[in-house]
Computed example of a mutant assay.
Amino acid sequence: MCRWLAYSGNAVPLETVLFRARHSLIDQSLHSTLGVTTTNGDGFGLGWYQHPHDIPYRYRSVHPAWNDRNLRELARAVSAPMVVAHVRAATHTPVQETNCHPFRHRRWLFAHNGLIRDFPLMRRDLVVAIDPGRFNTIEGSTDSEVMFCLAMTFGLEHAPVPALERMAGFVEATGRAHGVREPLNMTVCASDGEQLIAVRYSSERQSRSLFHSTSFRHLHELYPDDPRIAAVGDDAYLIVSEPLVSLPDAWAEVPEATAIVVRGARIDYLPFTPRVD
């Protein structure tokens, strides 16, 4: 499938988040250990915020992440306090820039790992439910972008977790109406520059892997001379498809059917229950 990460903390060079860890996201694009596929080379993308209220910047490419010189230059030059990055393994849709995550609408970014099963069978019913005012913003052909547009339709900008629950409930109800028993598998991330919202959920309760960092204060104590850890600050937070480094107690697995909301130093863990209004 895919691998992604989201970072919130002090502004740091993007290369700190993307390249420098032993099992960085760029390494995962070639050597994923927990994903369905080992290689995630069907394009990549990253979005970042310089200031919370700004429209996020974005860079996407169909090149493999490990082989894109421009990405290395950009990651060395740009610093940001919030980043969403994604490496893609395509499932049944073309390798093209408009299919690369993260997707963007105004201040919002969205990235997804997983799938809507039998998406071509359900696609028309899902797309018809998208708010007409958002329909023309669809650029690609992925199930992920449709999920994002549905979440926006259901109120992502105003109540993110309930909107994602309504999106998931609608996908499941639509799938089951078409005879698809387990329609949805997802780890998703959404951000508006002020918060990160991440969800791990699947219809079969066997979701793709997802982890979060535990405490950078703890890491500062363990590795006081590591400038990479010092730079991110005590309240930094990472949500990742796979742990970036093998350090004791540095990572915790996100439980099934759980949403995480990160706003600065505040972190809330919420049960995630799809619903149909």
Score class of each variant (00 low, 15 high):
Val261Ser: 10
Leu210Gln: 10
Asp225Cys: 11
Leu238Tyr: 01
Thr214Arg: 02
Thr258Trp: 05
His218Gly: 06
Glu256Val: 07
Leu219Asp: 09
Ile229Met: 06
Trp251Ile: 07
Ala252Lys: 03
Ala259Gln: 06
Arg217Tyr: 03
Ala230Ile: 00
Ala250Val: 08
Arg217Lys: 04
His218Phe: 13
Leu210Gly: 05
Pro227Thr: 11
Val240Asn: 00
Glu242Val: 08
Arg208Ser: 12
Val232Thr: 11
Glu221Asn: 03
Asp249Val: 02
Pro243Gln: 11
Val245Ala: 14
Asp225Asn: 15
Arg217Leu: 10
Ala236Ser: 05
Asp226Leu: 12
Leu244Asp: 00
Ile260Cys: 07
Ala259Tyr: 05
Glu253Trp: 04
Val254Arg: 03
Leu247Val: 15
Leu238Ala: 05
Arg217Gly: 14
Tyr237Ser: 12
Trp251Gln: 04
Thr258Glu: 10
Pro224Cys: 09
His212Trp: 13
Val261Tyr: 01
Ser209Gln: 04
Leu238Thr: 06
Ile239Asp: 07
Tyr223Lys: 08
Leu219Phe: 12
Pro248Ile: 04
Arg217Asn: 07
Phe216Ser: 04
Asp225Lys: 06
Glu221Pro: 00
Val245Phe: 01
Leu222Pro: 00
Thr258Tyr: 05
Tyr223Ile: 13
Val245Gly: 00
Ser209Thr: 14
Ala257Phe: 04
Arg205Thr: 10
Arg217Glu: 11
Arg217Cys: 04
Tyr223Leu: 15
Ala236His: 02
Ile260Glu: 05
Ser215Thr: 11
Phe216Pro: 10
Arg205Tyr: 04
Leu219Met: 15
Ala257Ser: 15
Leu247Thr: 10
Val261Ala: 07
Val240Trp: 01
Asp226Arg: 05
